[in-house]
């Protein structure tokens, strides 16, 4: 799974990083294992820890217990962790490339593209079945991202600043169509589409785990390979060019990887806002490190965040399931504000 891949890379890159960062990433990994265990143990279906262990090792007390642990809790938690890592890495890449700490995939059109397609299909062609939603969401976010890329490149060359702003503009335009559909579409269908969009980790199964893992397997190594140009880009375009890095190629490559990661995540669970915004900052606060290690920490932090958000969303008010996306947004933003203010207070000292 992506977690192990990350650690593998982390281990290799760890040669250059401070002791503390390695320790923190180890701690995060343990925390993630903790969340996974906790999620497996907790739920509305009454199972004590010995029963859960028995189920995991093939001695399930009943078929239902096996279904609950293997089909509900396990894939759901894994998807939450994977999606969290994806969104966090996507956000970190966008922030590095644009050299702006506020970039996030949910602010630049990726989520909105998915939303428009899913809402249109749910409202205009309800017979199509909701299992098509992931594919449609993926198509929608890629199409919109492509549109933004196309619109932001011009004769004067592509500019990442323009990419972000274009993303916000296109996102607003697309959201107005979505809200027209939501406002004048059938109320029940609109509600269902809204619920799905608000981050529906609840309906995932092993299929999602499978294709998220495959994506992780292919995209994350490419991503890590980009760590080198990233660290150069961070110091500005001139420095990077001076170091002999083909800045433009590296940039657009990273943007495309970031979009692909975010689109996959959105396709799996709908729009989980602000993970990509918060995780990189949180990771930086946990340990100062080079770009490679920071990406590892970011991925782990993101996984932990969404894992916790999903757990809180389903356990806090059971049987009412709060969509994970609302939890990440409502908790993520205040955390982000606090983080950024403390960073500033420290840098002023």
């Amino acid at each position: 799974m992506s977690t192990t891949t990350l650690i593998g890379f982390g281990g290799r890159l760890a040669l250059r990083v401070p002791y503390r960062a390695a320790l923190v990433s180890l701690g995060l990994t343990f925390a993630i294992i903790g969340v996974l265990t906790w999620s497996l143990m907790t739920g509305s279906y009454p199972l004590d820890s010995t029963q859960v262990w028995a189920t995991l090792f093939g001695n399930s007390p009943s078929d239902t217990a096996s279904t609950v642990v293997w089909e509900f809790r396990f894939p759901r938690t894994l998807v939450a962790l994977l999606v969290g890592a994806f969104l966090a890495l996507s956000g970190a890449a966008l922030q590095y490339v644009t050299r702006n700490p506020l970039a996030d995939p949910s602010l630049v059109g990726v989520s909105q593209g998915a939303a428009l397609v899913v809402v249109s299909v749910t409202i205009l062609a309800p017979g199509m079945g909701s299992y098509l939603r992931p594919i449609l969401a993926f198509g929608g976010s890629l199409a919109v991202a492509a549109l933004i890329l196309l619109a932001s490149s011009s004769r004067r060359g592509g500019d990442t600043l323009r990419f972000i702003l274009m993303g916000i503009g296109v996102a607003a335009l697309i959201s107005s169509f979505t809200s027209a559909l939501l406002t004048y579409g059938d109320i029940d269908r609109a509600m269902s589409a809204l619920g799905w969009l608000a981050g529906s980790v609840h309906s995932v199964g092993w299929d999602e785990v499978r294709w998220l893992s495959v994506t992780a397997f292919f995209v994350i190594p490419a991503f890590m390979a980009a760590a080198r140009p990233l660290s150069a880009i961070r110091f500005g375009e001139d420095v990077a060019t001076g170091l002999g890095i083909r800045v433009r190629m590296a940039r657009w490559g990273l943007i495309i990887l970031a979009v692909a990661l975010a689109a996959t995540a959105v396709a799996a669970v709908g729009a989980l806002g602000f993970v990509g915004l918060v995780a990189p900052h949180l990771a930086r606060r946990l340990a100062h490190s080079g770009v490679g290690m920071h990406l590892v920490l970011t991925g782990l932090t993101g996984a932990l965040l969404v894992g916790l958000a999903d757990f809180a969303g389903r356990a806090a008010f059971a049987p009412i399931q709060i969509p994970a996306g609302l939890v990440t947004a409502i908790i993520g933003v205040p955390v982000f504000v606090a983080l950024i203010l403390r960073t500033q207070a420290r840098s002023q000292l």
Partner: peptide, 16 residues
């Protein structure tokens, strides 16, 4: 750019 992004973040948060 930073102002616009933080505007989008605050808007997104309140919408959530």
């Amino acid at each position: 750019l930073t102002l616009i992004l933080s505007g989008a973040a605050v808007g997104g948060f309140l919408y959530a």
